[in-house]
Design a protein around this nucleic acid. Sequence first.
DNA 1: CGAATTTGACCCGCGC
DNA 2: GCGCGGGTCAAATTCG
Length: 703
Amino acid sequence: MSEFNDLVPNGDWLPTSPSPSPSSRALISSLRADTFGWPAHLEEANESTCKNLVVEPQEHVNWSNSVGNDGAQTGAMTNQTVNVSAPSKQNTSSRGGLMERMAARTGFNVSRLNTDGLRPSFVSQNQEIKSPYMSIAAGLSPSILLYSPVMLYNSLTILPQVSPPTGLLPCASGNESRSVMLTTEAADKMNETAFGTNISSYLSFNPIMETGGVNEFQIEGSVDPNNSLQLHSMEATQNEQICNEKTDIPMFTEEDVRGSDKNPEVRAFNAVGGSTEHPPSLEKQQNEGAAGDTSVEDGHNWIKYGENQVKGSEYPRSFYKCTHPNCLVKKEIARYHQGHVTEVIYNGAHKHPKPQPNQISGPGSSSSFGDLQLDYVDPTGTGVNSDLALETVQQGPTAGGLKRKNDNLEAISFAALHSEYCRGAATLHSNDAQLGSADDVDIASIFSTEGDDHGTRGSPPLDCDDGGDDPESKIRKIEADATDTSSVSRSTKQPRIVVETISEVDVIEDGYRWRKYGQKLVKGNPNPRSYYKCTTSGCSVRKHVERSPFDQMSVITSYDGKHNHDAPEARSSIQVSSIASIYRSNPITTNAQDQVGRPEPKQLQKTSRRYGRGPPFGSTSGFNSFETNQQQGLTGPSMTGFNSDQHQFSVPAYPYPGWPQPVNDAGFVLPEGEPMPNPNMNYSNASSTYQQTMNGLPPGPQM
DNA sequence: CGAATTTGACCCGCGC
DNA sequence: GCGCGGGTCAAATTCG
Ligand SMILES: [Zn+2]
């Protein structure tokens, strides 16, 4: 891909190079003009955004996005140079003007940041991710979410299931699969340190697996004198809605959690379970895990309130709750791929400001690990209605796979699927450079959520419900919900799938070809929304793509309708595999995968450079928008396909007629069929996710 | 020249 | 009824 080369210049692959590209990030930085350190900026920016979100969702404005062209840029994470002044030359011309405009509008200079490596681990470290989205830790593929216990449950959903009284959550295990998570004290200690705050209480959470599928969790909590934490061990066995095997997730009632909140922090969580299985390295993992968890630092203090094992993963999944009083935000941290991939799922958005750095504790803080992070945020906590989304990280060139440069892989993208209507969002980040094989890992996930309630009882976790594991069902729900929602645009009553992808590239490949037919600014998001139609004749599927106002890195793609055809061969390129390194700015040892997908669709290519025109600012809306490269990015290639072939993980099949099945190479990772909760599944491509989701959907109207 | 994108205008639903 | 906002259309533009 010569393209890359082209991109490169802009892309700021070089660490030092100023980033010419107008990445949204830059904008962000500009916003916060003060600092230049990326991370700092981000954080701040995020905060601001977050606040905005919480308070006034619509005001998130700061982000500019896009890196479209620059997709290549990803690499530059480390360096994040902010170019204050200059618009990127490359795309340039127009952009410069845009920049100026932007500045004019905003009143301040919009500097460009190299978005490229956005979300490097460091970013995550402190900054909160205010986005309502959850981040899924590395190693997890969005798909995982689908399949894995983790995703599936939104805190919201989960909570309901938990029996409040007991505080214990029975995970249902349809299977006995649940493994118990043990946390080591070490971890606890880790946490302590990490937290720096008072952590005195220990919780031990023991899921007890009883055969039968009913799991009992026992929670043991010790509280520090100082802390008021109180966890009580409780046993609960629930019969009914138990999450399927997948759900190893320890569940606590919100109350429990809240209670925990009160506590400064729960250090450790031990699972005492009866049948618990400990992976050999489990303890270690835990330690790491705990510590590792920290990798996902987001600037908030977290209390670990649970942990469980993840199928297919050596590492346990840790559950954390924001220690801020009344804050319901939770997050889950899991690692995959030998720890290279860290999945962080946030549930909810913080309504409160981040604690000061010193005080920050929590799992997430450490950055080192996190190769891949999946963040899932549940808006619930926030009160913000955010959609639930999963984000997966994509490697590769822009969505299509632009980003890779040479060996260093920089592009990262996350893709997430979520129903818009859902309130949570998940983000998957991969930081790992190593994923060598891992690279392959694609992370894709689909969320379906139903909205509302946050933790309320109403809806059982997706996973759980239905018969099970069907992703379909989940998806369907989503659709249904979506459709129900008024939000769905008039014209389409078709199911809408929302995928959030973290990537510098705006366009996410999903295996289909799209033609852009419009763009505009949408209220509440400084980033323009681009509208695409499926180019396949007879197919009315449309999608719109926009950068999340909360997280520049994340690209939210909403699909309306169902394809009546298979995905074009394409497969472009992009693999979604997550590459952690990106974040870190480390050169990634990319994997073949990335390369695999390669052939980028024309469009993609174009995207990077093509249109010299000015930035696309939404014509209609009056938002201030920052300049964005995005345009291009967005415009880009419509092809999307993720390669998953290489993934180690097999994707469960989803047989849904009407929907394109995932192609391996091209990028369809997931075979159609219902997704089984495979451990293996963990990694999937965003695209695959999309497809899966799609598959799950009822056959769309065929043309 | 064809294909794809850009972008302002138009349409429509919704809330006030 | 009016304005707002989102979605779509289509002429103009750009690029290969
Ligand atoms: Zn189609």
